[in-house]
């Protein structure tokens, strides 16, 4: 009994500790003016949304938010398409180079991102993709783990589905669209969610590839804002809130699926 209580308490303390910073974004953003400077620190939100409205109306957050939505949305759509197609080809179609491509994708996973930035920038420069939405989207339009996920999923589908389709003369693309993808819904959901999180949180790539405020996503805008409004904590945290809320919302609604997906589905039956 005591052991159970100890577990409960430890768990609660830990959860609180991990949540605390996110919680304080809210506390400071909606607190009174100068709450950030109070000693001892404030710990209760006051629900003053004035600063948030001020930040929202005095900077182009709608634009940045829209940019993030455009970039994430387009990336998600492209990733789902490329992952489905390549995953299907790797799982179900026999062609010379099938396994070679599999290893090539494994190879992409092993390439260290930080070491590639310079040549990637050069490539973007020569493709005239700097300062463009395309430049923020296309490099992420194919995703190694998405492909592997779909490949795994398609491999698990009984072959008889595909054979029936072949007997009925259904073309491969129709089969993928009408049968394989609908049956791989969990894989689609996982890919959409993980791509959304990764794409929304992009920072370094837009930092290097854009210098135009017109297309910069919210994280980058936030970083500029941070440098400009050094110690205006209410404004800063309000702006942070704008970037945080969509992620928190999505995570709140789908946390079980996301955590499970990250764990490779191993946690599924535990609850």
């Amino acid at each position: 009994m005591a052991r159970r209580l100890a577990v409960y308490v430890t768990r609660a303390v830990l959860a609180a500790a991990f949540m605390a910073p996110v919680y304080w974004v809210f506390v400071i953003a909606t607190g009174y003016h100068g709450a950030a400077y109070s000693l001892p620190p404030v710990w209760r939100p006051l629900f003053h949304f004035g600063p948030l409205t001020y930040v929202w109306t005095h900077t182009h957050w709608t634009r940045y938010l829209l940019n993030s939505v455009i970039i994430s949305g387009a990336t998600i759509i492209l990733v789902v398409i490329t992952s489905t197609l390549a995953g299907y080809a790797l799982a179900e179609i026999r062609f010379p180079g099938n396994s070679l491509y599999f290893y090539a994708i494994l190879g992409v996973m092993m390439l260290p991102q930080q070491a590639l930035l310079v040549p990637q920038y050069v490539a973007m420069y020569h493709l005239h993709l700097l300062n463009s939405y395309a430049g923020l989207i296309i490099p992420f339009a194919a995703n190694t783990s998405g492909i592997f996920l779909f490949r795994q999923f398609f491999k698990k589908l009984p072959t008889s589905y595909r054979e029936i389709a072949r007997l009925e003369g259904v073309s491969t693309l129709t089969y993928i669209r009408r049968v394989a993808v609908p049956m791989a819904r969990p894989a689609v959901a996982t890919t959409v969610l993980l791509t959304f999180i990764a794409s929304w949180n992009q920072f370094q790539w837009p930092l290097i590839m854009t210098n135009s405020a017109q297309i910069q996503p919210i994280e980058l805008a936030l970083s500029h804002y941070m440098q400009a409004y050094e110690a205006n904590w209410r404004e800063l945290t309000s702006a942070a809130l704008i970037a945080l809320v969509p992620i928190l919302g999505v995570f709140g609604l789908t946390q079980r699926h996301i955590v499970n997906a990250v764990a490779g589905g191993e946690l599924g039956q535990k609850e």
Binding site: S160, L167, R178, P182, M183
Partner: peptide, 23 residues
């Protein structure tokens, strides 16, 4: 087939119709 391979996301009607509608 042994496992019937009925498309789980389609109704019985659509299962029967799928091959023909694809053509």
């Amino acid at each position: 087939f042994q496992n019937y391979a009925l498309y789980p996301h389609m109704t019985v009607y659509d299962n029967l119709a799928f091959g023909m509608s694809a053509h």
